[in-house]
Design a protein around this nucleic acid. Structure first.
Length: 599
DNA sequence: GAGTTTGAAACT
DNA sequence: CAGTTTCAAACTC
């Protein structure tokens, strides 16, 4: 079909005019368009993009590594609410991940490159920094980056632009048409997961985007090492979603590495990729599976030379990934449906070769986390009780604290040896549901207990752990208001201290595991000798046996979770993975709870 | 800056 | 769904 100068469709005569002319045409179109209702209305790009912008602004700064340190990784929603902290973090992370505005935004252009990330908020109106150069699409097709990004053209070099306010009706129609064709048209193409650098080893200094192209690229000639490739442009590795040929954009690719090492000084994109690789290597291959190995790659396997052979470690990593990657990392179920803000496509969980997996994945599991939460509540409960008891006799807060801490030890399987303890027992549930009953609980404890409905806790309290509904420690029985406050403070301090210790141990184990993974990576790449590997006290992933793994996990369980300082094996809680209940410090060897002296 | 290459989007 | 065409960005000279 022959087209005019503008290449426009016949119903849209070529028009190289400037905005004024365009506006006239727009007005004409207005009468012919569907009008501003229907699907597009709710999907209107401006609104849509505005939301996107807001979300973008919520993204954590690169320096927020601390917020991503822990369990944000594996914690499950059902795991509890103390978890809240982690949970919230997770949510935030997820949001961040999902809202990652596609390809273009992510990348950081070299000065020479044309910036495509062109969105910014100004007075609530989407604005763009970069200009498109569309000539034949009227900027109403996805060819136009502005349109695809959901922003109006402004200051662009486009011709016959209809992607503006004046042509809103036409624009809406175009959006509708586009969405009909592809409901995900305006969604991010990259499912990514920002990952803060864990230490100084990754010098990129900022979050690195990891993810994969949801549709995958289809490159044939660029080797996926040019910006023609959307994956490359997004600074991500090609994934199994790609149908590219002769792909060189995979971890371990010599070409890709050469590209990076060759002229990376000014190529931030490569720095990002390098950071990706660094993380993959440092955190491990345990964190990210290896790419192209398993992917069928036209021409690659046959003619390009197996990447595996180039980097044998890849295969091993992949192998490891398959072995170790039982759970998927990023839940995607919560992602908003379509017209919503830029939400990363719901990438099928587990399908990514680069799926991030926390080093703590094997250390912390939802169930354990739940138990930990339960235990903390129990701990808080006990702490408050003890403090309250002491407060009746001793008004010196410091003395109370010391005493309480002493009771955490193994020697105090029964925290309170003084009489009258039994009467102090009260059901946490009751305390929670009825503030007038039982002894006082700190606001934080109460908050925790509001969510503490699991059977573990219920069981615990039913066994006499809790305080009685008519406990003698009712708030009114405390010496005075100040005493109550002090009780709260002391109680929380104890619990938080225990929790802090727990987290520290988790961190330590995570680091230990990281070391392990790094050793594995080095050994796989020939840097580390086999002897070194074998001498590693921690079993490597690839050779880790079930028993070893259990041992490892148990190490976490016993020493990490909850074990009060000085606790012995019998009394110390064992957060065993398969336990149906929580073993807490206040247990005896036979499992009887001895929070209080047996009467 | 013009021309070419490239691959996504659009179309058949 | 595969093949072809259109398109605009990326790239080369």
């Amino acid at each position: 079909m022959e087209k005019g100068e503008g290449g426009e469709d016949l119903n849209f005569p070529p028009n190289n005019t400037k905005p004024e002319a365009t506006k006239k045409l727009a007005r004409q179109l207005d009468f012919n368009t569907v009008g501003g209702s229907g699907l597009v209305t709710s999907v209107g790009l401006p609104e849509y993009h505005q939301m996107q912008m807001q979300i973008q602004m919520q993204q954590p700064r690169p320096s927020m590594a601390s917020s991503q340190s822990l369990p944000s990784l594996q914690m499950q929603p059902q795991a509890h609410s103390i978890q809240m902290t982690p949970s919230i973090q997770q949510s935030h992370v997820i949001t961040t991940i999902q809202q990652q505005p596609v390809i273009r935004p992510v990348k950081i252009e070299s000065p020479k490159a044309r910036p495509r990330q062109n969105v910014e908020i100004k007075d609530g109106t989407p604005k763009k920094q970069k200009q498109c150069n569309c000539k034949h699409s009227r900027c109403l097709k996805l060819y136009c980056e502005c349109f695809a990004s959901g922003v109006y053209c402004e200051g662009c070099n486009c011709v016959n632009c209809h992607n503006n306010v004046e042509n809103e009706p036409a624009r809406r129609e175009a959006i509708e048409t586009t969405l009909e064709r592809n409901p995900n048209a305006f969604r991010p193409k990259i499912g990514s997961s920002p990952h803060a650098n864990r230490d100084n080893r990754e010098e990129a200094g900022e979050a690195v985007v990891l993810g994969k192209h949801n549709k995958g690229c289809h490159c044939k000639k660029s080797g996926c090492l040019k910006k023609y490739c959307e994956c490359f442009q997004a600074s991500i590795l090609c994934s199994e979603n790609c149908k590219c040929m002769d792909c060189k954009n995979f971890e371990g690719s010599e070409e890709r590495q050469a590209l990076f090492h060759g002229d990376s000084a000014n190529n931030i994109a490569f720095l990002q990729q390098a950071a990706n690789a660094a993380i993959t290597g440092a955190i491990g291959s345990s964190g990210y599976g290896s790419p192209p190995v398993s992917r069928k790659r036209k021409g690659q396997d046959l003619s390009f030379g197996a990447p595996l052979e180039k980097d044998p470690s890849i295969h091993r990593f992949s192998q490891f990934q398959q072995t170790n990657h039982i759970k998927t990392s990023t839940p995607s179920s919560s992602w908003s449906p379509i017209p919503g803000p830029r939400v990363a496509n719901a990438t099928p969980v587990g399908s990514s070769k680069f799926t991030y997996r926390s080093l703590l994945a094997d250390l912390i599991r939802p169930k354990e986390m739940k138990e930990l939460c339960s235990l903390l509540v129990v701990y808080a409960n006990e702490a408050a009780r003890v403090i309250a008891d002491d407060q009746r006799e001793i008004t010196d807060a410091s003395t109370l604290k010391d005493r309480m801490q002493g009771e955490k030890g193994p020697d105090t399987e029964k925290p309170v040896g003084d009489g009258g303890v039994q009467a102090d027992k009260t059901s946490p549930d009751e305390s929670t549901s009825d503030g007038s009953k039982g002894r006082p609980m700190s606001p934080g404890t109460l908050a925790l207990m509001c969510d503490e409905q699991d059977t573990v806790f219920t069981t615990s309290t039913s066994n006499g752990l809790g305080l009685g509904p008519n406990g003698t420690d009712a708030p009114s029985q405390l010496p005075n208001g100040q005493a109550v406050t002090e009780t709260y403070a002391a109680q929380e301090q104890i619990v938080l201290t225990a929790f802090r210790d727990c987290l520290n141990r988790i961190i330590t184990l995570g680091e230990l595991k990281e070391t392990q993974c790094s050793s594995l990576a080095r050994s796989e790449s020939g840097i580390q000798s086999q002897n070194e590997v074998e001498s590693n006290t921690i079993p490597t992933h690839t050779t880790q046996t079930t028993s070893q793994r259990e041992q490892y996990n148990n190490g976490f369980s016993r020493s990490t979770v909850i074990a009060p300082q000085g606790g012995n094996a019998a009394a110390v809680g064992t957060f065993e993975n398969d336990s149906s209940h929580v073993k807490i410090p206040f247990r005896t060897e036979n499992g009887e709870r001895t929070l209080k002296p047996e009467q």
